[in-house]
Amino acid sequence: MKLILNHVIKSFDKKEVLRGANFAFEKGKIYGLLGRNGAGKTTLFNCINEDLKIDGGSILLEENGVKREVCPDDIGYVLSTPVVPEFLTGREFLKFFLDINVKKIPDIKPIDEYFDFVKIGSEDRDRLLKDYSHGMRNKMQMLVSFIANPCILLLDEPLTSFDVVVADEMKTLLRQIKKDHIIIFSTHIMELALDLCDEIVILSGGILEKMEKDDLSNEAFKDKIIQALRKDEND
């Protein structure tokens, strides 16, 4: 399975953010999306998620050689700032989510199993979400994005708010699920990208470019990436 971006164009007023971005993201890999502030990473995610209409080009999903439009159920999108309905408890939010997606989720498990999956303790499961910490809210948001089992996962700076232990748990979790998903992961932290991701893609000057590591050392690879990101300035 592949997510194929073909000459995607998006501009706001007169500012061109995406200038014909091309890329094929494949299943089984975690892609680290790097770009400078304002380069358009969130815009790109919003376009893939159809929150924004693209001005040109196409975003298609290729399955067994057949191309089709991306539909809402294909995508799980985790925002950098977690937002959850504060008046529900964690358990109620999950119940609601499972209720309305009952037909789409192949094998629904008991709610507590999901909590175990993201390691939310039993004492927290019946507390109101408004009393959850930032990290726990983020786990909830990730959880509902994972449960529906979309084939594409868009993660916008998801690990920055976690403490080191939880961040490590989440990394393990992402590695566990990657074989069935196309995971695109945007971040500003180069070490994280190099550590977790199988491929580094940079968004610079409105286009996507894959960074080949070849047989460079980590340091040399970092320099190469920074050089590539600097290009934006010279444009």
């Binding site: 998620n49 809402p72 995508i75 999108y77 925002l79 937002v83 959850v84 309905p85 504060e86 008046f87 989510f97 309305i100 997606n101 509902v144 529906a148």
Partner: peptide, 18 residues
């Protein structure tokens, strides 16, 4: 304030049917 501003960020919540 207490519901839609967070829920509207979820795509399933923005489906016409929902």
């Amino acid at each position: 304030m207490n519901c839609d501003h967070s829920m509207l960020t979820y795509r399933f919540y923005r489906q016409p049917r929902a």
